[in-house]
Design a binder for these strands. Structure first.
Length: 647
RNA sequence: GCCCAUUUAGCUCAGUAGGUAGAGCGCAUCCAUGGUAAGGAUGAGGUCGCCGGUUCAAUUCCGGCAAUGGGCUCCA
């Protein structure tokens, strides 16, 4: 039979040949390095039998699907090693993930790093044994019996989830057999380099009501060099971690007695925070927003109307008895600004002519996150967000949504984060309706409207089922931190529910009352989180326009201090943030310290500069860039600021 | 909230087989007045996260709590 290859050539194989046979027919070297096949554009196991006329592409480790197969097999090798050491271990699931693999297991003993070393040793043996992975199938009943006979309780459950009567697939390597849909690589011998990275807890099926299993994370590669590079990359990431750098550079700190998730922004952190806030508020004003300043707390009554009391109470800090048994009203710190801004909308009778009404607010919020959730400046109990609400008529919805989306993208470009984001269309989970307010019809409408708008913008987005807010679907702009963990940066939401609850209306052309649609949106998201991501993105060297300290003047000797201070005044008048290093240190030391602080520009001032009325300019990335007049310097800096230059 | 690990000077980290501790950086004082990534000397600074227990004696062992980190669940 003839098989088509990507280069347009054809390969002649005997009937029933597999993708792996095809690789062998081309060359043994290729067969060693391919891990997965793409047959007629579908990802398939190498064991898949080919048919006349199939198009075959063989994928090596540089392809994500090949990596996943490789890591999936690695997780089986780890499971096999675990079973050899702990025969009573029960296996749950063991998939490949974006940067490695894990396996969830139940085992009596609490595993330690010593156990990881033992498991690694056993894995080395399994790799040396170079076992083949053999594919097989069983009937539904046989599969359940197999799992029961082997005391694999979790596998029993997994099989029971499959449609009764279906054929169940397995992979076997040596004495170890695992329920698995595949695909897998051919032999254990290919996994030449691996490392088990950490142990953590994970609920069975991700449900906190279930038993907590032990999860072991690992990563593996076809050779030692790649593993070494990967581990070095992880080390590098640690150095950029905002939680370390942000503290070292004096952006923020935490204090036990203040509490979890309540960081203190220090002068540098607060300065950048202020710069970002002003930038956002100014841009919003240009785009027709009206600023509000609303209370940080309210009576329970307000949250009862909004639905927070029933659907978000666990997330709120409540002052007083939540049950209000003593007859006294409970108050709560606000977890969102929407109900407050709606009161301002409701303070007048609105005409369709008034719409759209765009409110923005630099808005401090309080959310009572579970204690295990807090992380640096990323997850907090008190944070500040560029929150706004746009009240629109139905025919303004699309334009205003796109306007909010455009503002968000403008911010992302200004921050230089455009290459690090992705879009997620977050919809509700139909099977979990208790989480949401409103009737399904409204949800359908909101989601369809949003999807149509998104499709018209032409952006690539993923769908996040169950990621919606309790009142409506969201477009989330997602960003990955330095460790690859994803968080929401910015969100734009459509709400068809709350206007009704708050009795928000406008008078239409026919003199009739109508509920507006509401767009909830952030333009830069949460400032603390944004700051964290910027610190990581720029390894602490924030772009000039948002750097808390832009210029440091370094006098050569004491005699130049006076000239330096005069320069500070002039440059401050020109709109820059300038400090002078007044310490009695050598110039080398002053440069080193300013460099470590990641100050964008250093101006060295000695006799020459004072005499010639110019600056010796040093840039944190480019080093000594020569002398400049004050005018030259100012125009250079202004250009950088205005264009959001990132060095 | 759950699982695991961690918590020693302002910061980064050593250390004590149970007998109250040390380095580097930083800080203070003095000397040196220095031209593009660390000049030198001296000194101050710690109830060894907090609260209990065991012990003649606890920073060290045990328990509880808190905070931090990695995950799970949840979420901006």
């Amino acid at each position: 039979m003839k098989i088509n290859l990507p280069d347009g050539s054809q390969l002649d194989l005997k009937e029933k040949s597999t993708a792996y046979d095809a690789a062998l027919a081309i060359s043994e070297g290729l067969a060693r390095n391919v891990y997965i096949a793409k047959i007629n554009n579908e990802i398939k196991d190498l064991r898949t039998e080919l048919e006349e006329g199939d198009t075959l592409e063989l994928l090596k480790f540089d392809h994500i699907e090949a990596k996943k197969a490789f890591w999936h097999t690695s997780s089986h090798i780890m499971a096999q090693a675990i079973k050899r050491i702990f025969p009573d271990a029960k296996l749950a699931i063991g998939p490949a993930i974006d940067d490695g693999f894990y396996y969830d297991i139940e085992v009596e003993k609490t595993l330690t790093t010593t156990d990881l070393t033992k498991i690694e040793k056993e894995m080395t043996k399994i790799v040396k044994e170079n076992l083949t992975l053999d594919y097989s199938t069983m009937s539904y009943e046989d599969a359940i019996n197999w799992a029961k006979d082997n005391d694999e309780d979790y596998k029993v459950e997994l099989i029971q989830d499959l449609p009764e009567g279906s054929v169940i697939s397995f992979y076997t390597q040596g004495e170890f057999t695992d329920l698995c849909a595949g695909p897998h690589i051919m032999r254990t011998g290919a996994v030449k380099a691996f490392k088990l990275l950490q142990i953590s807890g994970a609920y069975w099926r991700g449900d906190e009501n279930n038993k907590m299993l032990q999860r072991i994370y690992g990563v593996s590669f076809p050779n030692k060099k790649m593993l070494k590079e990967h581990l070095e990359m992880l080390e590098e990431a640690k150095k950029r971690d905002h939680n370390k750098l942000g503290r070292e550079l004096g952006y923020f700190t935490t204090v036990d007695s203040v509490g979890q998730g309540l960081p203190l922004l220090m002068p540098k952190g607060a300065k950048t925070f202020q710069i970002l806030t002003r930038f956002v508020e100014d841009e919003e004003q240009k785009r027709g927003y009206q600023i509000t300043k609303t209370p940080l707390m309210a009576k329970s009554d307000l949250y009862k109307i909004s639905g927070h009391w029933d659907h978000y109470r666990d997330g709120m800090f409540i002052l007083g008895d939540p049950e209000e048994k003593d007859g006294k009203t409970a108050y709560a710190l606000r977890p969102m600004t929407c109900p407050f801004q709606y009161q301002i909308y409701n303070s007048e009778t609105r005409s369709y002519r008034d719409l759209p009404i765009r409110y923005n607010e630099t808005s401090t919020l309080f959310r009572n996150e579970a204690s295990g959730e807090m992380h640096g400046l990323i997850r907090l109990r008190q944070f500040t967000i560029s929150e706004g609400h746009i009240m629109v008529t139905p025919d303004q919805l699309e334009e205003e949504f796109i306007g909010a989306f455009d503002l968000a993208n403008y911010m992302i470009r200004a921050l230089g984060l455009q290459d690090d984001i992705s879009y997620r269309f977050s919809i509700w989970d139909e099977d979990n309706r208790d989480k949401y307010i409103g009737d399904p019809k409204n949800w359908e409408n909101a989601q369809n409207a949003m999807q149509n708008i998104l499709d018209e913008t032409g952006i690539a987005y993923e769908v996040g089922v169950g990621e919606a807010a309790f009142y409506g679907p969201k477009l989330d702009i997602q960003i990955k931190n330095v460790f690859g963990k994803e968080d929401t940066l910015i969100t734009v939401q459509i709400d068809f529910q709350l206007a009704e609850r708050f009795n928000m209306v406008y008078i239409d052309q026919n003199g009739e009352k109508q509920h507006p649609f509401i767009i909830h949106r952030t333009s830069i998201g949460c400032y603390e989180r944004t700051l964290a991501l910027l610190i990581e993105k720029y390894a602490g060297a924030l772009p000039l326009w948002m750097a808390p300290e832009q210029i440091k003047i370094l006098p050569i000797a004491k005699s130049h201090l006076e000239g330096a201070k005069a320069a500070v005044k002039r440059l401050e008048l020109a709109g820059f943030r300038v400090e002078v290093d007044t310490r009695n240190e050598k110039i080398g030391k002053k440069i080193r310290d300013a460099q470590m602080e990641k100050i964008p520009y250093m101006l060295i001032m000695g006799d020459k500069e004072i005499e010639n009325k110019n600056y010796s300019v040093r840039h944190r990335k480019h080093g000594d860039i020569g002398t400049m007049s004050e005018e030259e310097l100012i125009s250079r800096l202004n250009h950088e600021v205005e264009n959001f230059v990132t060095d």
